[in-house]
């Protein structure tokens, strides 16, 4: 009659460890999957927030554009005439980059040399 050799302590420990490892792996995968989904939800929420922020930004930009229109600026002035474009006979703009133009600015009638 053959005698069966009883499994050793090391073998039992190894088998138990492997079973626990297998179970841990399964749970780990489930946890990872769950975390991944959570992240996707978070990203989804952030994307929603971003979309709403962009929407609001568009509204604000439109409002700013409307407020900064030349028509609004002219009517915003307290005087009845609104914003007045300078009288070009009294004030003239000179581009200093053009060589044939004078470099120095002056207020001739007020005896000033510098702008």
């Amino acid at each position: 009659m053959m005698r069966r050799k009883r499994p050793g302590f090391l073998s039992l420990t190894l088998k138990s460890f492997l079973v626990i490892l297998l179970i841990a792996c399964v749970f780990g995968i489930v946890k990872l999957r769950s975390d991944f989904l959570k992240l996707e939800y978070s990203i989804g929420e952030l994307e929603n927030k971003k979309t709403n922020a962009l929407r609001e930004r568009k509204l604000l930009l439109a409002e700013r554009t409307s407020i900064l229109s030349f028509a609004k600026i002219t009517t915003a002035q307290p005087s009845q005439e609104g914003f007045i474009i300078p009288d070009r006979v009294k004030v003239i703009s000179i581009d200093k980059n053009k060589k044939y133009m004078p470099y120095r600015a002056s207020l001739e009638k007020r005896n000033l040399d510098e702008p």
Binding site: D87, R88, V91, I92, K96, L107, E108
Partner: peptide, 25 residues
């Protein structure tokens, strides 16, 4: 034309009146 030329920074012609103030840009 008066306002547009002022906005476009078109200089007045020399034979005409000289400006009181010259502004360098």
């Amino acid at each position: 034309a008066n306002q547009a030329l002022s906005y476009l920074k078109v200089p007045i012609e020399e034979k005409q009146n000289k400006p009181d103030i010259v502004v360098m840009r």
